[in-house]
Design a protein around this nucleic acid. Structure first.
Lengths: 253, 253
DNA sequence: CGCTGAGTTGATAATGTTCAAATTTAGTGG
DNA sequence: CCACTAAATTTGAACATTATCAACTCAGCG
């Protein structure tokens, strides 16, 4: 019963999915459970977790899950599609703080102030599981595995932010783009998808706003890597032709 | 009974403190408790927390608290001095991920992998409280306030990393340096220290490695801000002459 | 089939890096 | 306390990378 899960993960997601309104999905039968919040929980625990998870209807492309400074109530697990988290700077520019794929959790930056520190918007039709934080807290207190795992998820968010910090601080445009592509590749593989061929759900502008580069620079890097036969780029469709070369580009110097 | 707390916070910390080995400090009488881990806990809860906290002898300047890939056992609260957290890139360069002042918690990036994702080193004589994570987890399960507060601390770490990401991605050298100075200023004020006059415990190289700039650029920014009468810079001793102007520099554009 | 927004490409400019050297500060041993 | 040395900081000049501005191309869509 994987209907509704990763509906948009394939190569062809140009048309909105029929949306079967299959909300029967639960954590036990979700094939993302191994990489999502239920990871490391036992069957009975998963059922308990399942009781607090809320599944709502899909988000349309461009729709917001929450906005900066909204009251914080829940964290979210992506079930299908891609969510972009971003902040808007004083002068109106956008800093993308992360792209979230199925099985990944977002919204944890809202805990500290009880208000979201970033906005979250669907880059394509997407569905998410909402996990009310107060329920999660209560459940964590009685489920050590869950508490541990959630601490780990937050910690991972920290280490990933630190990686991005390092990338922005020390790497050239080529290195940044290569690192992003490798990250997408790795995360695809975790979900049993191709590590070498995929469709980027984000625009070049989004990539630039994530990597601290202008669209033009991002575009030039793609062209360059294409010319070097490291990638085959056809609009958003990416094929990694030489992953070793891409790794070399990613940590040149 | 504040002996041993913030011993090095004053203007003159040129000679190592006598180190009275006063480890009698506990959370209840620590004047940092209002901004540190005990925040929001009740007296009896603070006593319980106190029982798991380990206080050891001070770190000398340059000494490591932990190193990247060390086994993760504990998080640490800074009691006195400054701790620099940093990662070393493949090519040997250093990315500073944070400076930690008294009352601040570090080491949370180690939770996700059970090994530290960064190294931590004392920038001056420093002392820390060690909080074994497994004890903290157990205590959190029975003290909702503590669990909540620790989630919030981790979340704050995330939002602060996101701010740094934005700074690195969107800001000029002047803006970055100004933002750092304002951050130091604010955090000093939180500890009842001067918001306008302080000694920077970190070197220009450290600042550069934090802000993604070379030493030369950092130095030039200091000179420029000095010439503009925004700062008075005398080596590590900084006086903010015009904090409004500094704020304008920090969010120019 | 033309329109619109996304993406690409080129030329020029700006910001910060790199390399080199001078200068100041901090530490060490007599 | 002073002389000496190493380390940190500052300053200058040339260079490199990426941003900016502008024009063009392409894909998708009514």
């Amino acid at each position: 019963m994987d209907v509704g899960v990763e509906v948009n993960a394939g190569v062809d997601n140009s048309s909105p999915t029929p949306c079967t309104h299959d909300f029967q999905v639960n954590c036990s039968n979700c094939r993302l459970s191994a990489i999502c919040l239920p990871f490391s929980l036992e069957a009975t625990e998963i059922d308990e977790l399942d009781r607090i998870v809320q599944r709502s209807k899909p988000l349309q492309k461009g729709q917001h899950l929450y906005r900066e400074s909204d009251d914080f109530q829940s964290v979210y697990a992506v079930r299908a599609g891609t969510i972009k988290a971003y902040r808007t700077t004083d002068d109106g520019r956008e800093q993308v703080t992360g792209f979230y794929f199925p099985g990944e959790i977002l919204g944890m930056d809202g805990i500290s102030n009880n208000s979201h520190a970033s906005s979250a918007k669907a880059l394509e039709t997407a569905s998410v599981c909402e996990i009310p934080f107060s329920s999660l807290e209560k459940l964590s207190a009685v489920m050590p595995h869950l508490q541990r795992h959630f601490f780990q998820l937050m910690s991972r968010e920290i280490t990933e932010d630190q990686q991005l910090i390092t990338l922005l601080s020390k790497s050239s445009a080529d290195e940044r783009v290569a690192a992003l592509l490798l990250s997408v590749s790795t995360r695809n593989a975790r979900r049993q998808l191709s590590a070498t061929q995929f469709r980027l759900s984000m625009s070049r502008v989004d990539i630039g706003n994530y990597l601290g580069l202008t669209v033009e620079t991002v575009s030039r890097v793609f062209s360059r890597l294409q010319k070097l036969k490291v990638l085959d780029v056809e609009n958003k469709e990416i094929q990694i032709l030489d992953i070793e070369a891409l790794r070399k580009v990613a940590d040149a110097r």
